[in-house]
Protein backbone atom coordinates (compact mmCIF):
# COMPACT_ATOMS: atom_id res chain seq x y z
CA UNK A 1 0.00 0.00 0.00
CA UNK A 2 1.27 3.44 -0.90
CA UNK A 3 1.24 6.10 1.80
CA UNK A 4 0.17 8.65 -0.80
CA UNK A 5 -1.28 7.87 -4.18
CA UNK A 6 -2.18 10.64 -6.57
CA UNK A 7 -3.68 9.72 -9.92
CA UNK A 8 -4.64 12.14 -12.65
CA UNK A 9 -5.01 15.08 -10.29
CA UNK A 10 -6.07 18.29 -11.98
CA UNK A 11 -6.83 21.48 -10.12
CA UNK A 12 -8.04 24.61 -11.81
CA UNK A 13 -8.75 27.95 -10.17
CA UNK A 14 -10.95 29.66 -12.72
CA UNK A 15 -8.78 29.93 -15.82
CA UNK A 16 -5.55 29.08 -14.01
CA UNK A 17 -4.41 25.49 -14.16
CA UNK A 18 -2.52 24.83 -10.94
CA UNK A 19 -2.13 21.08 -11.41
CA UNK A 20 -2.40 19.26 -14.69
CA UNK A 21 -3.04 15.50 -14.62
CA UNK A 22 -0.53 14.94 -11.82
CA UNK A 23 0.25 11.37 -10.82
CA UNK A 24 2.75 9.99 -8.33
CA UNK A 25 3.01 7.62 -5.40
CA UNK A 26 4.84 7.87 -2.12
CA UNK A 27 5.77 4.51 -0.64
CA UNK A 28 5.31 3.72 2.99
CA UNK A 29 8.26 4.55 5.19
CA UNK A 30 10.16 6.55 2.62
CA UNK A 31 11.27 10.14 2.71
CA UNK A 32 9.91 11.72 -0.42
CA UNK A 33 11.20 15.10 -1.52
CA UNK A 34 8.61 17.14 -3.37
CA UNK A 35 10.61 19.67 -5.26
CA UNK A 36 9.70 22.52 -7.52
CA UNK A 37 10.07 26.23 -7.95
CA UNK A 38 7.63 28.51 -6.20
CA UNK A 39 4.34 28.46 -8.03
CA UNK A 40 4.83 24.99 -9.48
CA UNK A 41 1.85 23.65 -7.55
CA UNK A 42 3.45 22.07 -4.49
CA UNK A 43 1.18 23.80 -2.00
CA UNK A 44 -1.87 23.10 -4.12
CA UNK A 45 -1.01 19.40 -4.08
CA UNK A 46 -0.61 19.44 -0.32
CA UNK A 47 -3.86 21.38 0.03
CA UNK A 48 -5.65 18.62 -1.85
CA UNK A 49 -3.99 15.91 0.25
CA UNK A 50 -5.36 17.60 3.38
CA UNK A 51 -8.75 18.51 1.89
CA UNK A 52 -8.02 22.24 2.15
CA UNK A 53 -8.78 22.41 -1.56
CA UNK A 54 -10.97 20.15 -3.69
CA UNK A 55 -9.64 18.63 -6.89
CA UNK A 56 -11.16 19.49 -10.25
CA UNK A 57 -10.47 15.91 -11.35
CA UNK A 58 -8.47 12.92 -10.25
CA UNK A 59 -8.14 10.41 -7.46
CA UNK A 60 -6.12 11.24 -4.36
CA UNK A 61 -5.65 8.68 -1.63
CA UNK A 62 -3.67 8.74 1.59
CA UNK A 63 -3.26 5.41 3.41
CA UNK A 64 -5.75 4.16 0.84
CA UNK A 65 -8.39 6.57 2.19
CA UNK A 66 -10.08 8.97 -0.19
CA UNK A 67 -8.55 12.37 0.59
CA UNK A 68 -11.92 14.10 0.56
CA UNK A 69 -14.37 11.65 2.03
CA UNK A 70 -12.07 10.24 4.69
CA UNK A 71 -10.06 13.35 5.42
CA UNK A 72 -10.55 13.21 9.17
CA UNK A 73 -9.03 9.71 9.44
CA UNK A 74 -6.14 10.81 7.26
CA UNK A 75 -5.44 13.86 9.37
CA UNK A 76 -5.65 11.80 12.56
CA UNK A 77 -2.60 9.84 11.36
CA UNK A 78 -0.78 12.77 9.78
CA UNK A 79 1.40 15.48 11.23
CA UNK A 80 1.44 18.65 9.17
CA UNK A 81 3.79 21.59 9.06
CA UNK A 82 1.76 23.97 6.89
CA UNK A 83 3.40 26.62 4.79
CA UNK A 84 2.67 30.26 5.46
CA UNK A 85 0.57 29.52 8.53
CA UNK A 86 0.98 31.92 11.37
CA UNK A 87 0.73 30.61 14.90
CA UNK A 88 -1.81 31.98 17.38
CA UNK A 89 -0.18 35.17 18.68
CA UNK A 90 -1.79 35.14 22.09
CA UNK A 91 -1.20 31.49 22.91
CA UNK A 92 2.06 30.19 24.36
CA UNK A 93 4.11 27.40 22.85
CA UNK A 94 2.75 25.07 25.50
CA UNK A 95 -0.86 26.01 24.73
CA UNK A 96 -0.28 25.38 21.03
CA UNK A 97 1.01 21.92 21.77
CA UNK A 98 -1.78 21.21 24.24
CA UNK A 99 -4.27 22.17 21.55
CA UNK A 100 -2.72 19.73 19.08
CA UNK A 101 -2.35 16.99 21.70
CA UNK A 102 -6.00 17.43 22.69
CA UNK A 103 -7.11 17.51 19.07
CA UNK A 104 -5.34 14.25 18.28
CA UNK A 105 -6.14 12.51 21.55
CA UNK A 106 -2.40 12.01 22.07
CA UNK A 107 -0.54 12.02 25.37
CA UNK A 108 2.75 13.70 24.46
CA UNK A 109 4.61 15.92 26.87
CA UNK A 110 4.88 19.48 25.47
CA UNK A 111 8.28 19.96 27.09
CA UNK A 112 9.73 16.85 25.49
CA UNK A 113 8.46 17.99 22.09
CA UNK A 114 9.98 21.42 22.43
CA UNK A 115 13.26 19.92 23.60
CA UNK A 116 13.42 18.06 20.33
CA UNK A 117 13.15 21.27 18.34
CA UNK A 118 15.27 23.26 20.76
CA UNK A 119 12.54 25.68 21.81
CA UNK A 120 11.88 24.54 25.36
CA UNK A 121 13.17 27.83 26.81
CA UNK A 122 10.30 29.68 25.17
CA UNK A 123 7.60 27.19 26.14
CA UNK A 124 5.59 29.65 28.24
CA UNK A 125 6.11 32.68 26.04
CA UNK A 126 3.40 33.87 23.70
CA UNK A 127 3.98 32.76 20.12
CA UNK A 128 3.28 36.33 18.98
CA UNK A 129 6.75 37.22 20.25
CA UNK A 130 8.52 34.37 18.48
CA UNK A 131 10.88 34.97 15.59
CA UNK A 132 10.12 33.35 12.24
CA UNK A 133 12.57 30.56 13.03
CA UNK A 134 11.04 29.95 16.46
CA UNK A 135 7.54 29.77 14.97
CA UNK A 136 8.80 27.27 12.44
CA UNK A 137 10.29 25.14 15.24
CA UNK A 138 7.01 25.29 17.12
CA UNK A 139 5.10 24.23 14.00
CA UNK A 140 7.51 21.33 13.54
CA UNK A 141 6.98 20.23 17.15
CA UNK A 142 3.21 20.43 16.57
CA UNK A 143 3.57 18.18 13.53
CA UNK A 144 5.36 15.57 15.63
CA UNK A 145 2.52 15.21 18.17
CA UNK A 146 1.17 11.68 18.44
CA UNK A 147 3.93 9.99 16.43
CA UNK A 148 2.08 10.33 13.12
CA UNK A 149 2.40 7.68 10.41
CA UNK A 150 2.81 10.42 7.82
CA UNK A 151 4.55 13.75 8.12
CA UNK A 152 3.70 16.41 5.56
CA UNK A 153 6.24 19.20 5.79
CA UNK A 154 5.57 22.11 3.46
CA UNK A 155 8.74 24.19 3.00
CA UNK A 156 9.88 23.32 6.51
CA UNK A 157 13.18 25.19 6.28
CA UNK A 158 11.50 28.55 5.79
CA UNK A 159 12.92 30.98 8.30
CA UNK A 160 15.43 28.51 9.72
CA UNK A 161 19.14 29.29 9.81
CA UNK A 162 21.50 26.62 8.43
CA UNK A 163 21.84 25.12 11.89
CA UNK A 164 18.08 24.96 12.32
CA UNK A 165 17.68 23.43 8.87
CA UNK A 166 20.18 20.72 9.79
CA UNK A 167 18.36 19.97 13.05
CA UNK A 168 15.15 19.76 11.08
CA UNK A 169 16.72 17.21 8.74
CA UNK A 170 17.94 15.21 11.76
CA UNK A 171 14.37 15.08 13.05
CA UNK A 172 13.16 13.94 9.64
CA UNK A 173 15.67 11.07 9.79
CA UNK A 174 14.64 10.15 13.34
CA UNK A 175 10.98 10.14 12.42
CA UNK A 176 11.69 8.06 9.35
CA UNK A 177 13.71 5.59 11.44
CA UNK A 178 10.71 5.30 13.78
CA UNK A 179 8.66 4.20 10.79
CA UNK A 180 7.04 7.41 9.59
CA UNK A 181 6.63 8.29 5.95
CA UNK A 182 7.83 11.81 5.27
CA UNK A 183 6.54 13.99 2.45
CA UNK A 184 8.78 16.98 2.31
CA UNK A 185 8.28 19.90 -0.06
CA UNK A 186 10.92 22.44 -0.91
CA UNK A 187 12.06 24.74 -3.66
CA UNK A 188 15.68 24.16 -2.67
CA UNK A 189 17.32 20.96 -3.86
CA UNK A 190 19.97 21.03 -1.18
CA UNK A 191 17.29 20.67 1.50
CA UNK A 192 15.95 17.44 0.10
CA UNK A 193 19.01 15.67 -1.28
CA UNK A 194 20.47 15.04 2.15
CA UNK A 195 17.42 13.25 3.55
CA UNK A 196 15.21 12.04 0.75
CA UNK A 197 15.04 8.51 -0.59
CA UNK A 198 13.28 9.70 -3.69
CA UNK A 199 12.60 13.07 -5.19
CA UNK A 200 9.77 14.20 -7.41
CA UNK A 201 10.24 17.39 -9.38
CA UNK A 202 7.17 19.44 -10.11
CA UNK A 203 7.08 22.04 -12.82
CA UNK A 204 4.06 24.05 -13.92
CA UNK A 205 1.71 21.60 -12.27
CA UNK A 206 3.26 18.51 -13.82
CA UNK A 207 5.68 15.96 -12.41
CA UNK A 208 8.70 16.10 -14.72
CA UNK A 209 10.85 13.55 -12.87
CA UNK A 210 10.56 11.07 -10.03
CA UNK A 211 13.65 9.16 -9.03
CA UNK A 212 16.21 8.54 -6.36
CA UNK A 213 18.72 11.32 -5.83
CA UNK A 214 21.48 9.37 -7.60
CA UNK A 215 19.12 8.31 -10.35
CA UNK A 216 18.26 11.91 -11.03
CA UNK A 217 21.91 12.83 -11.07
CA UNK A 218 22.62 10.09 -13.59
CA UNK A 219 19.71 11.00 -15.80
CA UNK A 220 20.94 14.53 -16.20
CA UNK A 221 24.71 14.39 -16.47
CA UNK A 222 27.38 11.78 -16.16
CA UNK A 223 29.60 12.20 -13.15
CA UNK A 224 31.75 15.27 -13.37
CA UNK A 225 32.96 17.70 -15.96
CA UNK A 226 36.67 18.32 -16.30
CA UNK A 227 37.87 21.63 -17.69
CA UNK A 228 41.40 21.57 -19.05
CA UNK A 229 43.17 24.73 -20.13
CA UNK A 230 45.72 23.99 -22.85
CA UNK A 231 48.14 25.91 -25.06
CA UNK A 232 46.35 24.82 -28.22
CA UNK A 233 43.76 22.30 -29.39
CA UNK A 234 44.12 19.77 -32.15
CA UNK A 235 41.94 17.00 -33.48
CA UNK A 236 44.37 14.23 -32.48
CA UNK A 237 44.22 15.25 -28.87
CA UNK A 238 40.44 15.37 -28.93
CA UNK A 239 40.35 11.97 -30.54
CA UNK A 240 42.59 10.52 -27.84
CA UNK A 241 40.44 12.01 -25.12
CA UNK A 242 37.26 10.66 -26.72
CA UNK A 243 38.72 7.16 -26.78
CA UNK A 244 39.65 7.32 -23.10
CA UNK A 245 37.45 4.95 -21.06
CA UNK A 246 34.35 6.44 -19.34
CA UNK A 247 34.47 9.70 -21.27
CA UNK A 248 30.99 10.58 -22.50
CA UNK A 249 31.41 13.95 -24.11
CA UNK A 250 34.20 16.23 -25.24
CA UNK A 251 33.78 19.82 -26.28
CA UNK A 252 36.10 22.70 -26.79
CA UNK A 253 35.67 26.22 -25.60
CA UNK A 254 37.50 29.13 -27.04
CA UNK A 255 37.21 31.41 -24.11
CA UNK A 256 39.42 31.07 -21.13
CA UNK A 257 38.90 31.38 -17.43
CA UNK A 258 36.77 34.27 -16.47
CA UNK A 259 36.58 35.21 -20.14
CA UNK A 260 39.63 37.43 -19.82
CA UNK A 261 42.03 35.60 -22.10
CA UNK A 262 41.53 33.43 -25.16
CA UNK A 263 43.12 30.30 -23.79
CA UNK A 264 41.55 27.24 -25.38
CA UNK A 265 39.77 24.87 -23.06
CA UNK A 266 38.74 21.26 -23.44
CA UNK A 267 35.66 20.30 -21.46
CA UNK A 268 35.36 16.60 -20.81
CA UNK A 269 32.50 14.77 -19.20
CA UNK A 270 33.77 11.64 -17.62
CA UNK A 271 32.65 9.04 -15.16
CA UNK A 272 36.21 7.77 -14.78
CA UNK A 273 39.59 8.97 -13.55
CA UNK A 274 40.58 12.54 -14.35
CA UNK A 275 44.25 11.62 -14.56
CA UNK A 276 43.48 9.38 -17.54
CA UNK A 277 42.09 12.37 -19.39
CA UNK A 278 45.05 14.57 -18.49
CA UNK A 279 47.44 11.84 -19.65
CA UNK A 280 45.61 11.49 -22.93
CA UNK A 281 45.90 15.21 -23.60
CA UNK A 282 49.54 15.40 -22.65
CA UNK A 283 50.46 12.33 -24.69
CA UNK A 284 49.05 14.12 -27.75
CA UNK A 285 51.65 16.82 -27.26
CA UNK A 286 49.49 19.51 -25.72
CA UNK A 287 50.59 21.50 -22.76
CA UNK A 288 48.18 21.42 -19.86
CA UNK A 289 48.22 24.76 -18.12
CA UNK A 290 45.53 24.17 -15.57
CA UNK A 291 42.46 22.10 -14.95
CA UNK A 292 39.55 21.84 -12.64
CA UNK A 293 36.61 19.57 -12.12
CA UNK A 294 33.00 20.37 -11.69
CA UNK A 295 30.59 17.91 -10.11
CA UNK A 296 27.14 17.80 -11.55
CA UNK A 297 25.29 19.21 -8.56
CA UNK A 298 21.72 18.41 -7.79
CA UNK A 299 21.07 22.08 -8.19
CA UNK A 300 22.03 21.62 -11.85
CA UNK A 301 19.64 18.70 -12.01
CA UNK A 302 16.88 20.76 -10.53
CA UNK A 303 17.67 23.57 -12.90
CA UNK A 304 17.66 21.27 -15.87
CA UNK A 305 14.21 20.02 -15.01
CA UNK A 306 12.60 23.24 -13.98
CA UNK A 307 13.91 25.63 -16.60
CA UNK A 308 14.50 25.42 -20.31
CA UNK A 309 13.35 22.33 -22.13
CA UNK A 310 13.42 19.87 -19.29
CA UNK A 311 15.21 16.55 -19.20
CA UNK A 312 18.38 16.33 -21.24
CA UNK A 313 18.99 20.04 -21.24
CA UNK A 314 22.02 19.66 -19.07
CA UNK A 315 23.49 16.53 -20.62
CA UNK A 316 24.75 18.24 -23.73
CA UNK A 317 25.88 21.50 -22.24
CA UNK A 318 26.65 20.75 -18.67
CA UNK A 319 29.77 22.82 -18.64
CA UNK A 320 30.20 26.11 -17.00
CA UNK A 321 32.67 28.74 -17.80
CA UNK A 322 32.98 29.95 -14.26
CA UNK A 323 36.21 29.37 -12.38
CA UNK A 324 34.93 27.92 -9.17
CA UNK A 325 34.76 24.26 -8.55
CA UNK A 326 31.12 23.72 -8.11
CA UNK A 327 30.53 22.30 -4.72
CA UNK A 328 28.53 25.35 -3.94
CA UNK A 329 24.91 24.37 -3.67
CA UNK A 330 23.60 27.87 -3.36
CA UNK A 331 20.13 27.91 -4.74
CA UNK A 332 19.64 29.92 -7.84
CA UNK A 333 15.96 30.57 -7.85
CA UNK A 334 16.19 33.81 -9.75
CA UNK A 335 15.14 32.27 -13.01
CA UNK A 336 12.18 30.44 -11.56
CA UNK A 337 10.97 32.89 -9.02
CA UNK A 338 7.32 33.35 -9.26
CA UNK A 339 4.91 34.07 -6.52
CA UNK A 340 2.33 31.61 -5.52
CA UNK A 341 -0.04 34.24 -4.29
CA UNK A 342 -1.96 34.45 -7.51
CA UNK A 343 -3.03 30.86 -7.18
CA UNK A 344 -4.45 30.89 -3.73
Amino acid sequence: MAAISVAGLTKRYGQTVALDDLSFRVHENEVFGFLGPNGAGKSTTINVLLDFARPTAGDVRVFDHDAQRRSREIRRRTGVLPEGASTYDRLTGRQHLEFVIGSKGADDDPERLLERVDLVDAIDKKAGGYSKGMSQRLLLAMALVGDPDLLILDEPSTGLDPNGAREMRDIVREENARGATVFFSSHIMEQVEAVCDRVGILRDGEMVAVDTVSGLRDSVGQGSTLHVWVDHVDETALERVRSTPDVTAVTTEGEGRGGESAEPTIAVQTGGAKTDVIHAIESAGLEVRDFETEETSLEDVFHAYTTGSGSGAVAGEGTRTGTETDTDPEPDTGATEETEAGRR
Partner: peptide, 8 residues
Protein backbone atom coordinates in the same frame (compact mmCIF):
# COMPACT_ATOMS: atom_id res chain seq x y z
CA UNK B 1 -4.25 25.54 8.16
CA UNK B 2 -3.13 24.56 11.63
CA UNK B 3 -6.70 24.16 12.81
CA UNK B 4 -7.82 22.08 9.85
CA UNK B 5 -4.66 20.01 9.51
CA UNK B 6 -5.79 18.49 12.81
CA UNK B 7 -8.55 15.89 12.76
CA UNK B 8 -11.37 18.44 12.86
Amino acid sequence: KILLSLPH
